[in-house]
Design a protein around this nucleic acid. Structure first.
Lengths: 351, 351
DNA sequence: CACGTACGTGGATACGTTTTCAAACATCTC
DNA sequence: GAGATGTTTGAAAACGTATCCACGTACGTG
């Protein structure tokens, strides 16, 4: 267990100053002669610059943070793989945290990242804008993936007020919005719409939506696609846990035996729906049709194989990592990736 | 975007020296009077000690590294969740890398962690002892999870030589072994044995094993449980990828239509087996019985639901993290966690 | 040849913290 | 009251790096 060589050792061995070594190694200018010598000595001493010194000097930690709700959820696993792949290509470390879809844990993890001076973060947010205030205040550059943070309640109210004023022909007072962060999202709206149309095409009229945390945009798309009036009993929510998802699915099937199709807002919801349906002796797709958000390897294993709305989890992670590494254009860019309805066997005509 | 307060700011504001502030905040001794003052000022300034300074001073990064083959594999997702849960409770960062079951990538990631001065690592190893030499040489304290690194080829040879000497009544020369690292493993041997016995009890005689990278111990257990002579055509291997797993499974079924049962060494192998069987019109369990290593949520979704050998992925991660955080006893501890055969519907009597 | 410009180089400094060390002070004992 | 003992305190020195700045040298131009 020998201790590592420092830049000073290299400088002495090469007969140059530390500044020169630093420059050579970080691509600065230097005469070919000295550059060669430094490189040779560095290689011979097996010198690797210490991230500690560099980080302190630049007052920032390299690499990035990654916050996801749950690595057990295959979709977030894919997302994480994408991020890690991009980070690996640049040799940068990524600090991962799992929030469990709990704003409080998310907040603590943000604090931890701040303490580490990690100033680039890609996150699947759970808390609202207020939770994220400390991060933006510290100048973190964050990219949201898969979802956007919910807007705080008072802002929703203010929006309502604005709407009223507009109705009266007044122009609402300008307010400072929190700076929008760049984000990488799937085209939830199109995905959900396609799925709902598909189900309607099969004759379904009473279609339910099974949502989880962060599925607001999907729910909104569902409402829009179904069209008013929406049967509110048919849209139910679960928290992040598998138990809660099962309870929600089971409750839905029991309270509304008349529904003929359900779209699950995520893969753990889909899993729960399959389980609950089986438990209640509902056959898929004979008794109930099912389409699930997220394509995951096991969707094909179910019988019947699940019809899904696929979103490119890995790509989303990769793009998000790219975005956070290269600040890109002037104003925050938000990337929307396409979804695809993959028709397998879990949907049938209305019985 | 104000800049953060430093320990110096706190010291000045509280009218004490920086050393005192440092002591108070890290639990050192101080008079109640000054302690209170410092704490108050720190809170008021919203001071958070920077990990950068501390890390450099102590020449080590807090927290730990985590290296897994693939976060898309649900089992490793569970493992990672366990590690993250433990780390979260202590507020420490964890740097995650995905090796893709490729020793070269693993090696690079180890290098990256070394550069970051991360000196605690929990890993599902892919490379052999040689790959891990740099880590131990640098004094990293590493805990292996799920598997142990393969021993380098020359050592296997040396072992063979030793065996011969023993046969001749000679005692082999003492050699220096690399220091064994602590590890957290599942009781593969018992799990596999139980599964094989279960299958034999159902009348199966031609049982195949579908293995992946790092499944050496499981294969060995399989050989032992099946008993000599082992039909070598019935044990096949895939690399880490899903494609390779599918190819292996499909090839196995086609080359040996006479097999009646398969034990898959991991969940992606199990997935591949189900897929391949379906593609070849083999019914489970009528035509072929299947037991899969790893219990994953979707095992229950298959039809029939998969009989599995469950290993506590999350616990393994948590224990590994504990082990790496508290160096525990004198000599390296290796923890073996129990497995459980969960009988569902994918095994039937021999046709 | 004198001058200006460009470039290569190394010394010094700062980044924010922990830890050592000795000084200052309070308390106790005889 | 003097000495011994213990406690609290702050100045200073690291930790390894990147960057500023000033110095020297070489070169091109007039």
């Amino acid at each position: 267990m020998e201790k590592r060589a420092t830049i000073k050792d290299v400088a002495e061995a090469a007969g140059v100053g530390v500044a020169t070594v630093s420059r050579v190694l970080s691509g600065g200018s230097a005469s070919p002669r000295t550059r060669e010598r430094v490189l040779a000595v560095a290689a011979q001493l097996d010198y690797r610059p210490s991230a500690l010194g560099r980080n302190l000097r630049q007052r920032r930690t390299g690499g990035m943070g990654l916050l996801v709700p749950d690595l057990t959820d295959t979709f977030y696993g894919q997302l994480a793989e994408g991020v890690l792949a991009c980070a690996r290509s640049t040799g940068e470390p990524v600090v991962v945290g799992s929030t469990g879809d709990d704003p409080e844990q998310e907040s603590e993890l943000i604090g931890m990242l701040l303490e580490q001076s990690v100033d680039r973060l890609i996150a699947v947010p759970t808390g609202d804008a207020e939770t994220w205030a400390p991060a933006v205040r510290a100048g973190m550059s964050v990219v949201f993936a898969d979802r956007l943070p919910a807007r705080p309640a008072e802002e929703e109210q203010q929006d309502a007020v604005d709407d009223l004023m507009r109705l009266d022909g007044l122009s609402p007072a300008a307010r400072t919005r929190p700076p929008e962060a760049p984000s990488v999202l799937a085209d939830d709206r199109a995905g959900i719409r396609t799925a709902v149309r598909y189900l309607r095409g099969l004759g379904h009229r009473r279609i339910a939506f099974l949502g989880g945390p962060g599925h607001d945009r999907r729910v909104a798309a569902f409402r829009e696609a179904v069209g008013a009036p929406v049967d509110e009993e048919l849209v139910v929510f679960a928290t992040g846990s598998r138990d809660s998802a099962y309870a929600a699915a089971s409750g839905l099937f029991q309270s509304r035996p008349d529904l003929t199709a359900v779209v699950a807002g995520g893969n753990v919801l889909g899993e729960a729906a399959v389980l609950a349906a089986r438990e209640l002796d509902l056959r898929v797709p004979r008794d109930v049709s099912l389409v699930m958000y997220d394509d995951v390897p096991w969707a094909e294993l179910c019988s019947p194989p699940l019809t899904v709305i696929a979103q490119p989890g890995r790509d989303m992670g990769y793009r998000a990592a790219e975005l956070v590494l290269r600040p890109g254009g002037r104003r925050p860019r938000t990337v929307v990736l396409p979804t695809e309805l993959i028709i397998r066997g879990s949907c049938g005509p209305r019985r």
